[in-house]
Write a protein that binds this DNA or RNA. Sequence first.
DNA 1: CAGTGGTCTAGACCACCGG
DNA 2: CGGTGGTCTAGACCACTGT
Lengths: 253, 253
Amino acid sequence: MTGPFPQRVDAFSALPKYYQLKDILLRKIEDGDWQPEESIPSERELEEIYGVSRTTIRKALDILVSKGYLYREHGRGTFVAFPRLQQSLHTLTSFTEDMRRRGMEPGQRILMVDCIQPSRRIRQALSLRSDIELVLRVERLRLGNDEPVGIHDVYLPLCDKDPITADELARSGSLYALLQAKYNLTVADADESLESTVADEREAELLHISQGSPLLLIERISRLESGRPIEFVRMLYRADRYKYYVHLSRDTP
Amino acid sequence: MTGPFPQRVDAFSALPKYYQLKDILLRKIEDGDWQPEESIPSERELEEIYGVSRTTIRKALDILVSKGYLYREHGRGTFVAFPRLQQSLHTLTSFTEDMRRRGMEPGQRILMVDCIQPSRRIRQALSLRSDIELVLRVERLRLGNDEPVGIHDVYLPLCDKDPITADELARSGSLYALLQAKYNLTVADADESLESTVADEREAELLHISQGSPLLLIERISRLESGRPIEFVRMLYRADRYKYYVHLSRDTP
DNA sequence: CAGTGGTCTAGACCACCGG
DNA sequence: CGGTGGTCTAGACCACTGT
């Protein structure tokens, strides 16, 4: 609890007012000061309370609505939503981040790092025009707490500049971090497809399971802010060690 | 092409100006009037061109940015993004909508409609307090072009009021449409988990596959606008007939 | 430096909801 | 009817980018 006085918005903070306000309101929701299905103060009241304009209030509320913490009803008010078990989890993460979030220590065994000639499938996924352009292929066994969890097969259109070496990758661990550090490339979003499959002989051996065991197959095309494809990955996960979570919302046109 | 003159924003339209403007700009992007990585007019220029305030311009641009059609670079401008193959597909849909979008005719065979006593797992998913409250269970074989695609096992906290009958469901087809029509309940969002599994004897028979074939298992908790759980579903899909698509974006705090 | 997007204000009118 | 959220305006200052 922070006392009976509302936390203030600091005009001189480096953070925007709407962002500070979002955090203040979020705190109230998570602390239970406002209960689910209860209405929060109206936008005009919030203007008074925090001494910022209604535009700024609404920008803060927009964020909390989009994250599912609040919902609005036209002519009635703004209300606290029931808490979700896992708040908005359709976020793009690296395997490293993903494992940490699941409470496991990420690890890897590099199986291959090489420049290869891309198949038609890879070229199409990466929007490569010429079939002579080489792509970097990185195949890794992925570990969680030193046990095999999955196999990642990554293709990157990065063989012209000085390509990533197995050594760099081993030191860094996270490919996304390496792309950022070495080429100043920031992955912004991705499309994924998921399907179910079963392990063949090699996969079974690598993953320490028996042939025919169920695997989750995920294919991902990652993109830069501009939408330019920067990565194609095939990921195979042991069904008993990996579940995938998504948050979906209904289209509101 | 719509001629050299910019399409106008109609102040008297039922649609908001920012929404009309979004559509106008989207059209220009999709028609290729503006090419990928090309900058569009600045926000001040757009103000002039369309005769609306910068706030309205920005609201239209915000939508296109969030949908991945545009991206902004502070101090440089706003740019057209590379076209995504499938624009933003992390939308919650009913099986009926889903199949139609995949170009198949949806169908179903109802296997069970009954009020049952919920297991602990179901109660927890639906946030039910008492263990005496009954839930409606609906089990259906789902068809695409008359061929089995998956099995849906749905649990709804709706046994007190007059429950849905097999007959109503058979006539309606879509459960979401029925919830809307019969109880005025609108599903707003959902959390899903996905994993890989293999078919047991009964599943194999229902789906016309052999035992041990890979299946995609999806569990979903659907919620109303308020966040109140309204549905728990276990969905099993034939791996050879069903792929799942998601769009992910990187968190930008 | 001028031009860009990012934030913010103090107003205004509208559509919707409840009593 | 008064109060709510939804839209919109015409300004303003800031931080960042390029030249």
